[in-house]
Structures are given as C-alpha cells and as structure tokens.
C-alpha cells in the first residue's frame, strides 16, 4: 500500500525512533519531518498503539492442568539432587 515518497524514510524509522535506536543525524531528520507532516505524526501515534497492543498481558493463558504439572516440577526443585546437578 502506498506511502507518499517524501514520507517513506520517515515511516521506516518510526519504530526505531520510539525504541530510541536511531543515529543522531537520522533522529534529527525525522524530528524535522514530523514537525510539518501530519500524516507521519498520525502513523507515529499508530505505531505507539501497535506497541501497546503487543504488550497486552497474556498471563491468564496458563491452563490449570499445565499449571499443576509445572508446579510439580517446581516442588521437585526443592529436593531432587539430580535436578540441581549435584
């Protein structure tokens, strides 16, 4: 899908910008672009939302039977010398 030619480089750098992983000169170029480009500011906000979506907790997905079996392994850590590599 199309991204305006003037925005392509900026769009490529949005994730790295939020990761604080851009080289200083690239960071400066992006900041200058974002200062006047509403479209890329919109995409920057969208990338922020995407990152939030990725962090959505999934801790509730541990099934009870799996939990019980793994809990048994944790119990065994307390006494099984072979697990400890002794």
């Amino acid at each position: 899908m199309s991204v305006p030619p003037g925005c392509r480089e900026a769009v490529r750098r949005l994730w790295d910008h939020l990761d604080r992983g851009l080289e200083p000169n690239h960071e400066q170029q992006l900041e200058q672009h974002l200062a006047f480009c509403r479209r890329c500011c919109g995409e920057l906000e969208f990338v922020r939302e995407l990152r939030t979506l990725l962090r959505t907790p999934t801790a509730a997905s541990l099934p009870p039977d799996v939990h019980d079996r793994l809990d048994g392994v944790i119990d065994a850590l307390g006494g099984d010398e072979s697990l400890a590599g002794a």
């Binding site: 907790p57 999934t58 801790a59 509730a60 997905s61 541990l62 799996v66 939990h67 793994l70 809990d71 944790i74 850590l77």
Partner: peptide, 11 residues
Amino acid sequence: LARRELPGLYA
C-alpha cells in the same frame, strides 16, 4: 521465584 513467574514464563 518460579511460582511467581510461572504465568509469564509460560506466556
């Protein structure tokens, strides 16, 4: 530690 972190580890 393992009991506390089990859901996160499994995820």
